[in-house]
Design a protein around this nucleic acid. Sequence first.
DNA 1: TGCATAGCTGCACAACTGCGCAGGTATCGA
DNA 2: TCGATACCTGCGCAGTTGTGCAGCTATGCA
Lengths: 118, 118
Amino acid sequence: MHLVPADRADHRTIDGHRVCEAIAAIGEADHVRTWADRFSLLADPRRLALLIALDRTGPLAVSDLAVATGMNDPAASQALRLLRAAGVVAGEREGRVVRYRVVDQEVAALLKHCAADG
Amino acid sequence: MHLVPADRADHRTIDGHRVCEAIAAIGEADHVRTWADRFSLLADPRRLALLIALDRTGPLAVSDLAVATGMNDPAASQALRLLRAAGVVAGEREGRVVRYRVVDQEVAALLKHCAADG
DNA sequence: TGCATAGCTGCACAACTGCGCAGGTATCGA
DNA sequence: TCGATACCTGCGCAGTTGTGCAGCTATGCA
């Protein structure tokens, strides 16, 4: 089976068949990009702190999150906007308070993961 | 218990006790930063493809990885240097070939995670 | 000894991202 | 109706990061 694209077929390889295995393992480029984007959302300490707080404490208001993470309000708001646009969190309005929570199960699982270690 | 640092004690909060819970949930700043750095390494599609290939196919040479991921050699080399500096991968020299593999178990677990879904 | 290959490094450019400030919108209470 | 609160948005600056190119080191084979 030849999984090496034509435009790279002329490259020398050390283990040709393992290259094919690797290409099969990587799979769809879109799939990889989707996960890279997901990880990208968790790659910022402040966003990550925000998400950990939401995951373990439950729904929280923007200004409370700001205090808990040491950010100012606009910074927290902007981070939450990004996360909401990505479908990771969702906010519910109660009067003038908006409480956010984590809705993306994949991300929630990742967060559990970094809760597990010491 | 008052977990709100003195420099933020004058901020208004919606649910004061939940802010304390959130601060406790977030825990050590260094811990959060460590995980953010970890996620940061997985946040680039090419690095992620590299790591997925290594995780599922086993030890692979640099030039093979370059072919499999569509990167040119220096790009693959630089990505691997970064990952090695972070302690995520390690390389073993065999003659003039260097074969890399994933050594960070936390990262390996995360990679399994994004293998699980469709 | 000479040559090709495998991998590494430095540099410079462009693009992205985080961040704070200032100002705007919407809701609640007096 | 008026003010305060909770949140959102736009703008601009600074720092970081990805990328490609050119050249270097080291190994193996003839």
